[in-house]
Amino acid sequence: MVEADALVSAREEVLARLRAARDAGAPRGGVPPTPREYRRVGALAAGSAEVVDRLEETVTEYRAVVFRAAGPGDVPAVLASVLEGVGSVVVPPGLPTTWTDGLAVTVRRDDPPLSVPELDGLDAVLTGASVAIADTGTLVLAAGEPDQGRRAITLVPDHHVCVVDAAAVVSSVPEALARLDPTRPLTFVSGPSATSDIELDRVEGVHGPRRLDVVLVGPPRA
């Protein structure tokens, strides 16, 4: 073993084993091309009133709370009611200041980055989202987007308020992935933190934010 280690690196040996195995077990007749007959585009048009309504349903089923804002101009007023009673909120460096200017809340901008204990001392986090998937009730946060920021800020505070523009809402998982850049860290969020580890019953609220509020910005209910 020692001798072999000295002669051949683990990398070379694992790759050599896998090459031999790849050939020994190669399917007679080769591997057929991957059939991609599944739906690439979902039933509801991206950004439509219908797809936003469906997102509201699926997000609500995960016991997140949904608020509607008729347009960008209504966001500050909706946020004021969502954040009523909240003492402090962290926001990513590029979050529109118009969203937070009138809030009766201590707003901490994550610029320069706050320490983990500082984040732990804040009540809530307010961000945007890159994409939302109506089929599954999922919000996707892309790290480094100006209105989404670092991953830690949406993780440590116990209450996440996420503003989703109708233009970011798609029907299906394939449509969402096509819009995302895989080289930056992504977080797919479907409802508040939950576990099914006790008798396979879903219970909300473990290590991630225990409260998730979603503000949908766009056309009124269809």
């Binding site: 699926t58 995960y62 980055p113 998937i133 089929d135 599954t136 009730g137 999922t138 790290a143 480094g144 670092r150 991953r151 830690a152 895989p182 080289t183 930056r184 860290p185 992504l186 977080t187 797919f188 969020v189 479907s190 409802g191 508040p192 933190s193 939950a194 099914s196 879903r202 991630g208």
Partner: peptide, 24 residues
């Protein structure tokens, strides 16, 4: 997710590529 926990999507999926300066 549908096969595993029987949910449309699990609460959290994280993806990352290598190291991201200033994050994680």
């Amino acid at each position: 997710p549908r096969s595993s926990t029987g949910e449309r999507m699990n609460p959290y999926t994280s993806t990352w590529s290598g190291v991201t300066p200033g994050d994680g």
